[in-house]
């Protein structure tokens, strides 16, 4: 690994912590909204994995493109997609970021170049290759960042996409969120070779494995990878080792793992890890953390109020957005 150092100061660490707390508490509110039946459909929560979205986003610019999975609330929030529009989407409202057509699994925001919210495992990887190709052809010098889980590694599209990205030296940052379970199937039941980054390396990508629970490490790795991409080194691959604290979705009874394992991972969770470090090094007071939580809760409550009050799409619009209008360019 390069010995390049991150310029990290207290206020930046506070910002990272607050963003992770923001995602965590947003997800927790989603749980209660789900039991209140305000949010329906499948709901996949990001608890435990917040350091990845928050860390990686620090490396991306407004011009870069992002693709994520159906577990993407955290990515959308960290990218700056307005929380109101995310919440309204989950409520199925007109002012939702996908106009109520997508729901929790399909958050989209053109303005932030946030291209979903893809619920087909590995389905976004070819798209990421294509967006990177399109940007490169137009000399845009961007990075296309694609998040996916380790379950995607078993899909053919993973292998096709990595091959294409390297073959064409495309500016893609592949972020594998290895939370060790593809729904309920453990990594060792699914992969002949569990060293996922080695698969990427076999295609010639520069690939590494990092502690995905450590937001500073994620940020450092993502920044180095992005600068390599921007310097023309081609696609980069980061396997972030992580763990999801909640079930796969709201319907998961978690028969495939025991609570001792979950608790073990919770001890090294991203929020607790960073806040402990800050406390131990006298970089934060408990009151400051509480203030962050309070501010976040206020924002979430406002988002829920917004979503609650938002209008639904009139039924007459049902057929909208199937086809576009032909323009006279």
């Amino acid at each position: 690994m390069s010995n390049e150092k991150l310029h990290i100061n207290r206020s930046h660490l506070h910002l990272l912590l607050k963003q992770m707390i923001r995602i965590r508490r947003f997800e927790e509110r989603c749980v209660s909204l789900y039991s209140e039946e305000k949010i329906r459909g499948f709901l996949h929560l990001y608890n435990g994995e917040e350091a990845i979205a928050v860390g990686v986003m620090q490396a991306l610019t407004a011009e870069d493109a992002i693709l994520a999975t159906y577990r993407e609330h955290g990515h959308a929030l960290a990218r700056g997609v307005p929380m109101n529009s995310i919440m309204a989407e989950m409520f199925g409202k007109k002012s939702g970021c996908s106009g109520g057509r997508g729901g929790s699994m399909h958050l989209f925001a053109n303005e932030q170049r946030f291209y979903g919210g893809n619920a087909i495992v590995a389905g976004a990887l070819p798209l990421a290759v294509g967006i990177a190709l399109g940007d490169k052809m137009q000399q845009k010098h961007t990075v296309t960042c694609c998040f996916f889980g380790e379950g995607a590694v078993a899909e053919g599209e993973f292998h096709e996409s990595l091959n294409l990205a390297k073959l064409w030296q495309l500016p893609v940052l592949f972020i594998c969120e290895n939370n060790r379970y593809a729904m309920g199937t453990a990594l060792e039941i699914e992969e002949s070779n569990q060293q996922i980054h080695l698969k990427a390396a076999s295609y010639g990508l520069s690939a590494q494995v990092i502690d995905g629970m450590n937001v500073v490490e994620v940020e450092r790795a993502a920044k180095l990878a992005c600068s390599a991409i921007r310097n023309g080194a081609g696609p980069q691959f980061i396997e972030c080792q992580t763990y999801r604290f909640r079930g796969h979705s709201m319907f998961d009874t978690q028969l495939y793992r025991d609570s001792a394992e979950v608790n073990e991972w919770k001890k090294k969770g991203p929020v607790v890890q960073l806040s402990q470090w800050l406390k131990n090094n006298h970089q934060i007071q408990e009151e400051e953390i509480q203030a962050m939580e309070l501010a976040v809760d206020e924002e979430i409550t406002a988002a829920v109020d917004f979503a609650e009050a938002a209008e639904i799409e009139p039924l007459e619009t049902l057929l909208q957005h199937v086809y576009g209008e032909i323009s006279d360019e």
């Binding site: 294509g130 967006i131 399109g134 052809m137 599209e157 294409l164």
Partner: peptide, 10 residues
């Protein structure tokens, strides 16, 4: 898929 992505990118 790459074609779809490139189309999205303009």
């Amino acid at each position: 898929g790459a074609g779809i992505g490139a189309a999205i990118a303009g």
